[in-house]
Design a protein around this nucleic acid. Structure first.
Lengths: 140, 140
DNA sequence: TGCATTTATTTGTATGTACAAACAATTTTA
DNA sequence: TAAAATTGTTTGTACATACAAATAAATGCA
């Protein structure tokens, strides 16, 4: 992945996006065996850990807009991994039995994901980079 | 932007994507006055700096796939900021007069973009973060 | 010289995400 | 307590990007 020579390399917008695209590819690969792409896997993990969680809470956890979360949930409902129970203006999201069954595999794939990038980057560097990125996100 | 409490915060995929979304928003804001979103502005900068540049070269500079670059060029052609001259299997991309005229504004907006995030994050931290992100991208 | 391979670009199609508006339910307030 | 404001969710629509396949041109090889 050589990009050293791009004139945009000192632009955080550009660099952040490039990293994001690569990481998404790596992450999607990690979850591919389960048949989910990253966001769906993350969604399912959240719901499995907090059955009945509401879309708003999910959107905060995932740092995605509520409309995006609705779309993710819809697809997972269609695939029979999640169910919605609407009550008044709120909605509660639950895993199905099939959704629950996937949890161990997802956790394993997630661990692999961490392992795969942190061996390439080095554990310390990955950790520091992730923290720095979080710090930036938080400040911006 | 509080996200501290997300269980995914120590996941580089997640963090990288969150940063990317925020930076894209900031960057699009910076270029909004020109009526371009970030990628189009970057594309136009490249073409203005290298009239006749080919899509493959652009895709390397921008770290986007060739098909994405084709799509970007198409839209900029439609908006009369760029022109393609096809010659055999290669294509050369040129700015139109209107496209050239935009260059100073784009450069200014780009400078503002840099200024706006680096004042929030601190110059040194922005610089280091960008470099670290580039390093990661390069290694992955 | 003609066929096979590689290279550059485009096209068809799909995905992830967002914004703005719509809706529906709840809470506040006057 | 009725109207107004707020909150949670969904819908319509649009955009950036990618992958795989198609095309078309150039190159290498036999």
């Amino acid at each position: 992945m050589e990009q050293k020579d791009s004139k945009f390399c000192n632009c955080l917008y550009y660099s952040a996006n490039a990293l994001s695209r690569i990481m998404t590819k790596i992450s999607d690969d990690a979850f591919a065996s389960i048949g989910l792409s990253s966001s769906y896997a993350f969604l399912l993990m959240i719901v499995n850990d907090h059955p009945g969680v509401q879309p708003t809470e999910i959107s905060q956890q995932m740092q995605l807009t509520p409309s995006t979360v609705t779309r993710l949930i819809e697809k997972m409902e269609h695939r029979k991994y999640l169910e919605r129970k609407t009550n008044g203006r709120t909605t509660e999201v639950y895993p199905t039995v099939d959704g629950e069954k996937l949890q161990p595999k997802i956790k394993k794939a997630w661990a692999n994901l961490y392992h795969s990038y942190s061996t390439v980057l080095g554990k310390d560097f990955s950790k520091r980079l992730t923290e720095d990125i979080n710090l930036a996100t938080q400040k911006l």
